[in-house]
């Protein structure tokens, strides 16, 4: 279990990067950290991994402060691809393995295992500089897994990669979850967090707005919505049933009574001979929860 208690980080220029953050991440959970750029996700991760040490508050992994000994149990996947480009994939894995005190046949065995896990066995001897972005991302993750950590902290691991590599990374994360690892997954892609994680914490401007189990948050905050596309549907008519927003030439109607509203809209359109291109019930998404909590979309 990772416990973060009343954590505050202030930079030299007095900017508050994080304000009194507290959360508990249960062992074996996949925990999403969501927020726009500059929300404080990376800062919080750097504090958990002990890269940033000057902060107020307490961070503990299984009731132990993060020390060199505890670090042995943490694996960190940074947001940027940080690899030695002029050496091979295996060389990079060996470097990180050695940093975590692996050596000899155990190190070599682990390099083989991780290369297989990240799908780079065939390219093990090639220089990293010859790799595609997706391959580098996978190797970036592999370096964090060399010492078989209990807690894996991933900071935006899918930024700028192709769909195939993204899928590969998702599969790796699923495998880590199956193996009982605790995963912290920071992203501003809500759909990724919703797909992969059991819990989520929303960060915005250094503050934690809300956190908890994703299902519960969806139930608590997200309002079902209806997607309506067609010409001649008056907006004021839709506003009788709930809140309306416009998105790419279509209406999104947020309403607690979505099914009844749908029926009435269909009847209205039929009676008034209004053509409807598309009308569908939209399941609540994390994006909606964030919108409800902050009043703004993550993409704003």
């Amino acid at each position: 279990m990772l416990m973060i208690q009343n954590v505050t980080k202030r930079y030299d220029d007095k900017t508050e990067a994080l304000k009194d953050i507290s959360m508990i991440i249960p062992g074996g959970a996949c925990y999403g950290l969501v927020g726009p750029n500059g929300a404080g996700k990376s800062t919080l991760i750097k504090m958990i991994t002990s890269i940033i040490r000057d902060y107020k508050g307490k961070i503990e992994w299984n009731e132990n402060r993060i020390t060199d000994k505890t670090k042995q149990k943490l694996g960190y996947v940074p947001q940027d691809i940080i690899l030695e480009e002029d050496i091979s994939a295996a060389g990079n894995l060996q470097l990180f393995g050695r940093l975590y005190h692996l050596k000899g046949s155990r190190l070599n065995q682990r390099v083989k295992e991780v290369l297989a896990l990240i799908g780079l066995s065939e390219r093990s001897k090639d220089k990293v500089s010859t790799f595609s972005g997706g391959m580098k991302r996978r190797l970036n993750i592999g370096c964090a897994l060399m010492h078989n950590p209990e807690l894996i902290i991933m900071d935006e691991p899918t930024v700028g990669i192709d769909p195939q590599s993204r899928k590969y990374i998702f599969q790796m994360i699923d495998d880590l979850k199956t193996a009982g690892k605790t995963v912290i997954y920071a992203s501003h892609y809500m759909e990724e967090v919703e797909k992969l994680c059991d819990y989520v914490a929303f960060l915005d401007q250094g503050e934690m707005i809300e956190n908890g189990a994703i299902n519960e948050l969806l139930q608590q905050y997200a309002v079902p919505s209806i997607y309506i596309k067609g010409s001649g549907i008056p907006q004021d008519k839709l506003e009788q049933y709930g809140t309306v927003s416009l998105e790419d030439g279509a209406f999104i109607l947020y309403t607690e009574e979505a099914l009844q509203a749908m029926e009435r809209i269909i009847s209205y359109c039929r009676e008034n001979r209004i053509g409807v291109e598309r009308l569908e019930l939209v399941h609540p998404r994390l994006e909606d929860v964030f919108f409800r909590l902050t009043g703004s979309s993550l993409r704003d």
């Binding site: 890269i51 000994k69 670090k71 940027d80 940080i82 940093l99 005190h101």
Partner: peptide
């Protein structure tokens, strides 16, 4: 500048 120093600070390397 490329973050390797920070990356290594997350490992047990003193």
């Amino acid at each position: 500048d490329r973050g390797m120093t920070a990356r290594l600070a997350s490992t047990p390397l003193k």
